[in-house]
Simulated assay, not measured.
Amino acid sequence: MSVFLKALAVALPLAQAAEIYVSPTGADTAAGTIDAPLQSIQVAVNQATPGDTIYLRKGTYSPSSNIQINKSGTASAPYSLRAYKGEKITIDGEDLPGTPADLDASLPNEDRGIIHVQDAEYWVFSDLVLVNGPYGMYVRDASNNRYERLVTANNYETGFQMQGASSNNTVLYLDSYGNRDPRKNGESADGFACKEGEGEGNLLKGARLWDNVDDGLDLWEFKSAVTIEDTISWGNGFNRWDFTPFEGDGNGFKLGGGDDADIGPANHVITNCFAFNNAKDGFTDNSQPGDFKLTRNTAWNNAKTGFKFGTAAATLTENVSAVNGEKSTSLSDGQVSERNSWDNSADWGNGSFVTVDSELVKGARDADGKIASSSFLVPAFGEEIGARTEWA
């Protein structure tokens, strides 16, 4: 085949990719163009073919059934579902089933999530706000997808949940907060969770997880590695909804857990993350076996323990633990601890940091999606340990 024909063969699929437009004021009998948008996101999803981009125009969408994503693109022709040119998009799930489900009720799998991604690969989701749903983003048995600059807030279960056989997913710059689960009195609504499955190559980077009724991050019964970088978790596990009895936990980073028959080893990697002001521990293996690596993380002002590892074979390097309510660390003999704040005789308190003003990390993100740079919890005396928001 000539060079020209080879180039044409590559270009043709790209040329055939379409743009489909949706607006809250559109009509599903319309052409789906920018001047004649559809109204239903699901109709646009159903019409799309690999390589297509679905653009959502500004406003609030209030579907009565959740958005089902169950077909796959390819590496060279992924689907894309995104806001149009910086416009603010909110998908409000209040009218979906299970908002909330009754106390102790079971929520059917197909009803989970405002956006329900299952058995689907090569999708890109970006710049969407998902609120008041039975989960915000729910991902099951879905791999090779990218989720960027999403907000999952005030949902009736976990804000962003991934489970089952899900690999090679990237979650960038997620904000997930205020998620709660009345049907369980707060037992399992986390900011971000990988649960009940196996996968590899999954990355969570640059997330903020706060004021969720259970844990900020939960890797319950997820048996393979998850890489977590540049993520902040605070204020989780407090009963802001007057649940009686209250079942929430409140760890910043719960890196495993489950029944003995289902727990399995995992090799999680946690780098440059913050846990502060949580109701329980900052970082914990929660009885999860595996080979964990924690490097340059900071646990500050959590109610119980900063770093709690008793089962995993964790290597903890250049981490900082300070001003936690019960103890700095709880480490079994199987852990490797090197050049951490607790490995010397220094007593770390609030004065050990340039600033403990947490408002510095709670404001608007930068235009590229990163958490705004600051000196929050930077060691005051030049020690090259602990997490930073002074991004390289």
Results as ranks from 00 to 15, higher is better:
Phe243Thr: 04
Thr244Leu: 11
Pro245Phe: 08
Phe246Pro: 01
Gly248Asp: 13
Asp249Ala: 09
Gly250Val: 09
Phe253Leu: 11
Leu255Lys: 03
Gly256Met: 08
Gly256Tyr: 14
Gly256Asp: 01
Gly257Ala: 06
Gly257Leu: 05
Asp262Trp: 14
Asn267His: 03
Val269Glu: 10
Val269Trp: 01
Cys273Thr: 13
Cys273Trp: 10
Phe274Arg: 00
Ala275Gln: 00
Phe276Gly: 00
Ala279Arg: 04
Asp281Leu: 05
Thr284Val: 15
Asp285Lys: 04
Asn286Thr: 09
Ser287Gly: 05
Gln288Trp: 14
Leu294Gln: 02
Thr295Lys: 11
Ala299Cys: 10
Asn301Tyr: 13
Lys304Cys: 03
Lys304Phe: 14
Thr305Cys: 06
Gly306Tyr: 00
Gly306Gln: 00
Phe307Thr: 03
Gly310Cys: 08
Gly310Asn: 14
Ala312His: 09
Ala312Tyr: 05
Ala314Tyr: 04
Ala314Gly: 11
Thr317Arg: 09
Thr317His: 10
Thr317Met: 03
Val320Ser: 01
Ala322Phe: 11
Asn324Lys: 07
Asn324Leu: 09
Asn324Tyr: 05
Glu326Cys: 08
Lys327Asn: 01
Lys327Cys: 06
Ser328Pro: 07
Ser330Val: 14
Leu331Arg: 02
Ser332Gln: 09
Asp333Trp: 15
Ser337Pro: 06
Ser341Val: 15
Ser341Ile: 14
Trp342Asp: 02
Asp343Cys: 11
